[in-house]
Design a binder for these strands. Structure first.
Lengths: 189, 189
DNA sequence: TTCTTTTCTTAAACTAGATTAAGTTTTTTG
DNA sequence: CAAAAAACTTAATCTAGTTTAAGAAAAGAA
């Protein structure tokens, strides 16, 4: 059922089958069709999501009405609007499936309980968040040091299979430029 | 000695005086003069730093030779180049004191030991990292939705005292534009 | 297969912000 | 204190990337 998550956790901390059961009681599998939403602007972010299969993205709509993708999560990554999730404040973001996606959700009302019942997951999430923070530091570095064109080529070289999976307009907004400009870059080849 | 850090930890988890002693054995206080470095490009990031008093910044030097500040830490914040710190890889960043600063350092060779000896600190760092991740999500949102001028006014309104503490060229690079452009914005008042 | 919707492309006009360069003010240091 | 160094300003010129608008191609749906 949740074996993919268990395996991910086991890369970082041990987990007995008794503990798996305790955890299972707090989890829920959710299937999201392509383009469907796990979170919409104005709602409280109900859960922290672990992607089992597929791809989800965090985005918002800017003043001009354009979608700005700020994060993607694929297999074995967690994604949530933490500000909204942790404090149950209305979100400024959407979380949408970029492909038909299956996620495991840990709901807000189970989140602290999870750590009380399974304190070793503090370590797991500490390590997961450490990795996210590392990624964020690199992300900002790239945004501040590369031109739009360099960011595209770099991303494309780093994640060629992923680039194939998502529409270009999502990638363009993630890399911080317009779809039109992405077309221009691609036309140069 | 380390009471400011203990107090910060106690906001999140309990800490007995016995545990304080265990922790103290792994920590070190470092004083850094204004403009001095805790980390230079090419070195391994030796520690994770908790700012007791003052201000440190994480920056790199871009292809054009300009300093790009990607993060600041002031009182009661942690800062490190996580990629370099965790994996002891040569860093692409500098960590420099923006003011004469006092930090508490947890060295790389003590970091995992700290969690073994004091597992409850897993929770403390999980919560600290959660907050950092939240801040990173907001940061990206602002970078993607506001103009340079809006980012300046927003930051200025949010952290007026902090803006007074640092040179404008550091703030400009943190907000993602040039010092010349910042002057231009300020001249509009 | 056709129709509809979504995604991608092209190109001309435009602009936010960078660059360059010189001068001014402030801070630091001997 | 004077001199040097660091930080800030101003303004003209320039450019990377946006905007607008229209059409083409690809993907879904029926």
């Amino acid at each position: 059922m949740y074996s993919q998550l268990y395996n991910h956790i086991k890369k970082f901390v041990s987990l007995s089958s008794g503990e798996e059961e305790i955890l299972a009681a707090l989890l829920k599998t959710v299937s999201v069709n392509k383009k469907a939403f796990l979170l919409e602007q104005g709602q409280m972010c109900k859960a922290n999501y672990f992607v089992v299969k597929g791809c989800i993205r965090l985005y918002f709509i800017d003043i001009k009405g354009a979608e700005q993708t700020t994060q993607f999560a694929i297999e074995n990554w967690w994604l949530s609007d933490l500000t909204s999730f942790l404090f149950q404040k209305p979100s400024e973001f959407f979380i949408q499936a970029a492909e038909t996606t299956e996620v495991i959700a840990i709901a807000h009302h189970h989140y602290e309980e999870m750590f009380t019942q399974l304190p070793k997951l503090e370590r797991y999430f500490r390590l997961v968040l450490q990795k996210s923070h590392q990624a964020a530091q690199m992300r900002i570095r790239y945004l501040y040091s590369m031109t739009a064109e360099e960011r595209y080529h770099h991303f494309n070289a780093s994640f060629p299979e992923f680039v194939q999976r998502i529409p270009q307009y999502m990638l363009a907004s993630y890399l911080g430029f317009t779809p039109e400009f992405l077309s221009k870059i691609r036309a140069k080849r």
